[in-house]
Amino acid sequence: MSNWLQNMPTAEAYGLNKVLFELHHKPDDLAAYLGDKEAYLDRFALTGRARAAIRDNDVAALYLAGANPYLLRAHCIGIKIPEPVSVGALKALAGKN
């Protein structure tokens, strides 16, 4: 058992985490993202599945792709994914790995 899915982020996870970080720290980014997700995500080098996971608010896929737990948690709160949805998606993974 480990507290961490990735002890060192993969290159894919780095790109994904960069989006989750910039989205909530650069002054205009959240509005830009919410205004046009595809255009915003074009700014980043992302794998197809990382891009889709972010765009679709797929919390389970974000976790599995290596989202840092603090960035993922902040993102769920920051874009107002309902708590039962985000926590439920994660809990549904329990026992599947």
């Binding site: 919390v59 976790y63 737990p69 993922l72 769920c76 809990k91 026992g95």
Partner: peptide, 9 residues
């Protein structure tokens, strides 16, 4: 505590 993993909560 545990955040943003299947063990959250």
């Amino acid at each position: 505590h545990d955040l943003a993993t299947p063990r959250m909560g």
